[in-house]
């Protein structure tokens, strides 16, 4: 089954995965503490541009990946707008009560959800699992036991997808009625889980049979170090935050400085 999407490698792929992870986690918390909607809108737009042009994926793939996050944006923003509290009423219609305060708060929350989603997308689209875990072992001293377990699990996922397809065919062939969420979950979960659990156990035994001890001395096939792109990465995100903040404060779109 075709499950892997081909993409162009960009400079973001070349950065050190641990450093990228740390930078993006820092940004994640920074976004949580931005209360000025002007700044947040700037940050989101900048991340969106990076998402579109920095990840190296074709436009249609990006569109489908972005769609769920856009829906989250719309739903969080609209629910905050319609049911929030405030003093300057714009519309009141039954349960729905839109005020100026709640409207801007909704916009703010929506953009926050969007920015967090974009951060996650940028990371996962530009990081391959193997370099990520090698880097985590080398830079952040993650125990090999956990790193290789995750890598083995990553290998199991496409196999499970293929098996899911087969189980679906098998149930059709047997004429199993395709209804009832609970019975459906059971019919898929039992064969898929039993297969994966046994396979995981076998892989674990095979790994130990290859003298894998989970800790202790080992060498690495991939040496993950730092390069010029890592400087770019830090510089880019620092500049991005600074410009977003500066523009947000001095050239605001709206007059509200703090939505709290």
């Amino acid at each position: 089954m075709k499950w892997e999407v081909r993409c162009r490698e960009t400079w973001l792929h070349e950065t050190n995965p641990s450093l990228k992870l740390i930078v993006l986690v820092v940004l994640f918390f920074a976004v949580l503490f931005i209360h000025n909607p002007n700044v947040l809108i700037n940050v989101s737009l900048a991340l969106f541009v990076l998402f579109c042009f920095g990840t190296g994926y074709p436009a249609n793939v990006l569109f489908w990946l972005f769609l769920p996050f856009f829906l989250v944006f719309v739903s969080t923003a609209s629910s905050m707008m319609m049911f929030g509290e405030g003093t300057t009423t714009w519309v009141r219609w039954g349960l729905i009560h839109v005020t100026a305060e709640s409207f801007w708060r909704g916009v703010h929350i929506g953009f926050r959800a969007l920015a967090l989603g974009l951060l996650g997308l940028i990371f996962s689209l530009t990081t391959r699992p193997v370099p990520l875990f090698y880097s985590l072992m080398q830079q952040l001293k993650l125990k090999p036991k956990y790193a290789y377990s995750f890598l083995a699990a990553v290998r199991l996922l496409p196999m499970m997808l293929e098996e899911f397809q087969t189980v679906r065919y098998a149930l059709t062939v047997r004429g199993v009625p395709n209804k009832g969420v609970l019975s459906k979950v059971k019919r898929y979960a039992i064969p898929l889980l039993s297969q994966s659990i046994r396979r995981a156990q076998r892989i674990a035994v095979a790994m130990e049979a290859k003298q894998f001890s989970g800790s202790g001395q080992r060498t690495f096939y991939y040496e993950i170090g730092f390069g010029k792109y890592d400087i770019w990465l830090v510089a880019l995100f620092a500049a991005l935050m600074f410009v977003a903040y500066y523009m947000g404060v001095h050239y605001p779109y709206i007059s509200i400085r703090d939505v709290r």
Binding site: P129, V130, Y148, R155, M159, R199, R202, I203, A206
Partner: peptide, 10 residues
């Protein structure tokens, strides 16, 4: 089992 003795993708 050829599918249950590898832990790496390549």
């Amino acid at each position: 089992d050829p599918d249950a003795q590898f832990c790496m993708p390549y």
